[in-house]
Design a protein around this nucleic acid. Structure first.
Lengths: 249, 249
DNA sequence: CGTGTTTTTGACTTCAGTCAATTAAAGTGG
DNA sequence: CCACTTTAATTGACTGAAGTCAAAAACACG
């Protein structure tokens, strides 16, 4: 997943293959996708609302986020993306993007022409199905976030987010479930869960005080996974992972 | 869209065709999909969480909704579906559903075997692309709902929902944008926008008092569309409609 | 008509937001 | 390595939007 990988698209091919088994030629076709790799600094826009992106962007390393700005200037983060995620399948088929995508940390991203991706999806139905599944899983996560923000209180929302991030990180082999770096400010966490940074701070400290977590700066240690998952009403079902991660078996 | 339609799938074929132009044979293949039509009473489950649906369900008439139940028993509605919507593309490709789908009113639904739909999608890339677009639009609406529930206040959330419902209804030729039936109780509206029924009631009455709407029981009359859209921070962009409805031009 | 929803209203509570100040950490350039 | 700036985290006092509880009024429906 780093720039020293033999081929930048290997991780992507593996991800697709974990959804739907890919034949040799299908797998080769994925790796043969035309692409250009770029390193982007933190805080840079990958896609802006109203853009018509001609390229789809695949995360190779680092973290990015999608967000919308609402009337009073408030920002809502809609998704966090990490290595292996196709950031912009959502927008490439639309006339124009309905939201922004921005890097959270420094990122390596591979830009793939929309048309090549589309051709590939329809020449290899296994690849097409795997890509479709990816977008369906994105949708499933969106639904869980609607429920998180709409019907859970501050403690539940934040605990849920901490669990989701942990599980997704582990699924791609970065960091352990119970000890990881969360590359976000408390303000950004607030924009994920629909709270103010002040209240995020108070809630995070309460989780620490209750012995569920232990934070130092950006590092999160989950001391009691079971408790935190219970507190956050968290369950991996909606992530539709190929296999359950060990910690939750 | 009613049972007196010559063919129950006509509306669906038209919907797909409005996303991506369909050739004669592609269109014929859509109409040739095996299916069985059922009339379901209000309040019935179409899909339950953890189900593995073998059929995908297409709305022919009536309204249904997806929802999740959270830890404290609260319910969050994730989407409202109306005639022409594919209700369960989301779940048919997963091992098991991650949420419930239930009828809101009496509905006519066509059940289509998952496998037939999948075959069709990959034998006609136009159909496949149109279906993919449908799921991407669902995703776009989910994202807007995250922002609605996460970052807007009660008045904005409800105004936004009233606008969205109006536009979607008009897009399928049921009711006018500014005068329609909303087939939901205030409790259900609350479950859409993440508020209690009491607060929904107070907010709806405030909109009436301000002269933006006029309600009698389930009927909604929008007296000032511009104002209501502004109040709800509503903009049709995220609906990615083939053409803009007249009222918003 | 009576019965069960649904809507409406009022009084009171609470969770989360606001505003503002303080502390801590992370860079930055000399 | 140290002053200097900037950004992020933390804390406190106060406010306010939305929730809770409970009862009354208005409908819908058999």
């Amino acid at each position: 997943m780093s720039s020293r990988d033999p081929h930048p698209l290997t991780a992507f091919a593996q991800r697709l293959g974990s959804r739907v088994p890919l034949s040799e030629p299908a797998s080769a076709a994925v790796l043969a996708l035309p692409h250009s790799v770029r390193v982007m600094p933190a805080g840079e826009h990958i896609v802006r609302e109203r853009d018509r992106p001609s390229h789809c962007c695949l995360m190779l390393s680092g973290f990015s986020y999608r967000h919308k700005i609402v009337a009073n200037g408030g920002r809502q983060i809609l998704a966090i993306h990490m290595a292996g995620d196709m950031v912009d399948l959502q927008n490439t088929f639309f006339a124009s993007s309905d939201h922004n995508v921005q890097t959270l940390t420094q990122c390596e991203v591979a830009f793939i022409p929309r048309t090549s991706l589309e051709e590939l999806a329809f020449s290899f139905s296994s690849v097409g199905k795997a890509m479709w599944l990816e977008t369906l899983i994105d949708g499933s996560i969106f639904r869980e976030w609607i429920a998180n923000v709409g019907r859970r209180n501050a403690k539940q929302r934040i605990a849920h987010f901490l669990c989701e991030f942990a599980v997704r990180l582990e699924a791609i082999g970065l960091g352990e479930t119970c000890n990881y770096e969360l590359p976000m400010t408390q303000e950004q966490i607030g924009d994920v869960v629909g709270l103010t940074s002040v209240h995020v701070n108070r809630t995070l400290m309460a989780l620490d005080r209750e012995g569920l977590t232990e934070r130092t700066r950006r590092s999160v240690i989950i001391l009691d996974w079971q408790q935190l998952a219970r507190a956050g009403d968290f369950n991996t079902h909606y992530l539709h992972m190929p296999e359950q991660p060990s910690a939750l078996a």
